[in-house]
Structure formats: C-alpha cells, structure tokens
C-alpha cells in the first residue's frame, strides 16, 4: 500500500499506509491523523480537509478543478500548493506523498 506522510503544523509526522482508491482525506481519517475535519464527508463543499502538498509532489497530485478552486479561494490562509485532500485520490504513483497540515482548518 502507498505510504503517505502528514506533517502537523507543530512538526509531528504521521506516516500511514493508504488504500489505493480512497482519498488522501479518507486515508487520514481512517488512520486517526489529527488536523483534518472533513465536515462535509468528502463532497468538496466545506474546505476543512485543507493540506499543502510538498513541492516535489505537486505535479503528481495535479491541480484543483473548478469546484475545489472556488472553495480554496475563500480560505484566507491558502498557499500556492494548497489542496483539498478529499479531491486527491490515492494511487500507487503517490507512494511517498508528503503533505503539510495547516495550523487551523477554516
């Protein structure tokens, strides 16, 4: 199974084995990674699964589509590499993916 590392704002790292086909958000929830709320349950409608994708991985995870873009755009703490993790699907290609978690979900 692909490994994904989530790094909390305070530096704490969580490496999890993620199932192929689930979202990066769901892999965090399934493995009790703190810092992702996912209030809408993966519908791209709340922006509480915000992560920042490590630079080397940005190309592989792709860029936000229109719906995600409009939700991200409303977040004052948005960065250039911000994504909603419910919109990134885990694949074998993403083995080793590293994402940073924001200090707060908005």
């Amino acid at each position: 199974m692909p490994k994904i590392t989530y790094i909390e704002h305070n530096g704490t790292q969580h490496e999890v084995d993620a199932e192929v086909g689930v979202s990066v958000m769901q892999a965090a929830i399934d493995n009790l990674v703190p810092g992702i709320d996912a209030d809408c349950g993966g519908e791209c409608s709340c922006a509480t699964c915000h992560v920042m994708v490590k630079e080397d991985w940005v190309a592989k995870t792709g860029s936000p589509e229109e719906g995600e873009e409009s939700m991200l755009d409303l977040n004052p703490e948005r960065q250039g590499n911000s994504r909603l993790s419910c919109q990134i699907t885990v694949t074998e290609e993403l083995d080793g993916l590293i994402v940073d978690l924001p200090e707060f979900q908005f």
Binding site: D37, A38, D39, C40, E43, S45, C46, S70, M71, L74
Partner: peptide
Amino acid sequence: KRARQHLSFGFGPHRCMGNR
C-alpha cells in the same frame, strides 16, 4: 461520532464564515 458532520453551517461557497 462524526458530530461535525451536520448541515447547520451550510456547505459550498456560502458556508458559515463565523463557524469557528
């Protein structure tokens, strides 16, 4: 469990700005 998954703040671009 999953107490945060409720509709009171709405969803989408109009989701409650003051929810936190």
